[in-house]
Design a protein around this nucleic acid. Structure first.
Lengths: 108, 108
DNA sequence: CGGAATCCAGATTGATACTG
DNA sequence: CAGTATCAATCTGGATTCCG
């Protein structure tokens, strides 16, 4: 998914939203962050199959879109925590609705 | 977005839903079909920028996922109408939620 | 630990031309 | 009208290596 410059396909608000949350791993990432703050390594562990490269990339995009916050601790070894911003938090209803539909439609 | 074989990334229901509606043009297509039935050419006209090839492909995927229905009229020249199935209709709340979020977040 | 940089194969997409 | 076929260009994601 070529990345959103806040330019919306055909002025469609649905597409605009999908540009933000439609990335390959963004659903899972946000789904986890809805629950609590996660460290990079933790996210990687709860997302079997994701590569370090992709996880980083998706997190950076979500950060650029103002959905998540990246907090770097000045420690050795490094520690980075990811959490939802207020904007990210405002996606909760959307996420829960998608979750419910997914559960009903498949049998998750 | 590689296509769903109803196999869900990490068993995450959010990702499962995104696999269905997250395709490049699926948001816009569904957004229009929420309103009424459309013919192929009509959809093409209301979606500036989509190519015939891509529109066909996305419609076929939505059809395969049971979201939309394709009705072919035995006429010359050909006439094909696309409409929501019951399953597609069940996505209405999800779509409206994404639309609302998009409107609020951007100023659409 | 949490990345960044590089390389590359394969998937996606666009352009164009053709058809029942 | 509503596609299909083909080819080229682009984009994506995975593997690997290195680094503070």
């Amino acid at each position: 998914m070529r990345h959103s410059t806040y330019k919306c396909n055909n002025g469609c608000p649905v597409e605009a939203t999908l540009e933000i949350i439609g990335g390959k791993w963004k659903g899972v990432i946000l789904y986890h962050l809805m629950e609590r703050t996660y460290r990079f390594g933790e996210l990687k562990r709860v997302m079997p199959g994701v590569t370090q490269r992709m996880l980083t990339k998706q997190l950076r995009e979500l950060e650029a879109d103002g959905i998540i916050h990246r907090k770097v601790y000045a420690e050795v070894p490094p520690k980075v925590e990811y959490s939802l911003t207020d904007v990210g938090e405002s996606l909760r209803d959307v996420m829960m609705m998608m979750r419910d539909w997914g559960r009903n439609h498949f049998g998750l």
